[in-house]
């Protein structure tokens, strides 16, 4: 693109933004802001800091509703951001994550989360997004995975009650098992300041090699090498929508998804080799 074209495009972008003439969906997702600003800030980290490599992107459906289910780790949800970049730039799909309610109570963070396409983890929102044909993402381990000690790295935690499986069955959409390798090493959690965390209303407050010793500098993530693998979709459309209320079926399918992801994690971790090379 020639220089004047580029300048004109930037001007048009700024005018649209300043005049409020852009679209957000009913969840508050602002695709333009996400692509042009938020993801743009993450892309250097994605490519140069974590050197993310993806495997099996072809397993992500090109269109229509699907549920990406991934492992969660790293103390702060950096893995969610990197998976969003991977799916946006390599699969051409906007990832709509279901997040903890803590996020939506916080100023700035809650609304940035909505603008980048995410919403609260609740049945109504999950069902609505899947019905609309969105690519929805969940981390069923939640805080148990995100805040686990470094010694437990790459050991999948419990998967809750399998609400995500029930949502997938109700919508009849495939589940894409996803393994993220590399996030475990960014903030190795060696200890937990439990009392202080409770006082601040946080699920945990980690002690890492750099935090809290280096203050804000301790928030710098270690430059681990990342790999994100997308597995073969697990179909749910052969079940009746009513099957979502069958706890046995939901538990079995949840266990199956969990085993597949654990296996993918083990393979991908071997393939990656050393964490920081």
């Amino acid at each position: 693109m020639s220089e004047p074209d580029r300048a004109a495009e930037i001007l048009a972008f700024l005018r649209r933004r300043l005049n409020g003439e852009y679209e957000v969906d009913e969840f508050g997702y602002d695709p333009e802001l996400t692509d042009k600003v938020l993801l743009e800030l993450l892309r250097p980290i994605y490519h140069h800091w974590f050197r993310v490599e993806t495997v099996g992107v072809k397993n992500v459906p090109e269109d229509g509703g699907a549920l990406v289910v991934a492992n969660h780790s790293g103390t702060l949800p950096v893995d969610a951001l990197m998976t969003q970049v991977a799916l946006h730039d390599e699969a051409g799909r906007a990832l709509r994550l279901l997040g903890a309610d803590l996020v939506y109570q916080l100023p700035v963070l809650g609304h940035l989360s909505r603008k980048s396409g995410h919403t609260l983890a609740c049945r109504e929102d999950a069902d609505r997004m899947l019905r609309k044909g969105e690519l929805v993402g969940v981390f069923p381990e939640g805080y148990k995975g995100l805040g686990k000690p470094y010694a437990d790295r790459y050991k999948l935690q419990r998967f809750g009650r399998g609400g995500f499986v029930a949502s997938a069955i109700r919508a009849g959409v495939p589940i894409v098992p996803t393994a993220i390798v590399g996030a475990e090493e960014i903030y190795p959690k060696l200890g937990d300041m439990k009392t202080l965390a409770r006082a601040l209303g946080l699920p945990y407050l980690p002690i890492t090699p750099l935090f809290p010793w280096l203050g804000p500098l301790g928030l710098l993530p270690l430059p681990s090498k990342w790999m994100i693998g997308f597995g073969e979709p697990i179909r749910t459309d052969e079940y009746e929508p009513g099957a979502a209320d069958d706890p046995m079926l939901v538990f079995n399918l949840t266990d199956h998804v969990r085993e597949v992801i654990q296996q993918m994690l083990n393979e991908l971790r071997l393939r990656r080799g050393h964490a920081f090379v």
């Binding site: 009913e26 969840f27 309610d101 939506y104 809650g110 919403t119 609260l120 109504e124 609505r128």
Partner: peptide, 12 residues
């Protein structure tokens, strides 16, 4: 509320 679904239908 931050704890409610983003979009309400009549039965929520």
């Amino acid at each position: 509320s931050p704890k409610d679904p983003a979009v309400f239908d009549e039965d929520v």
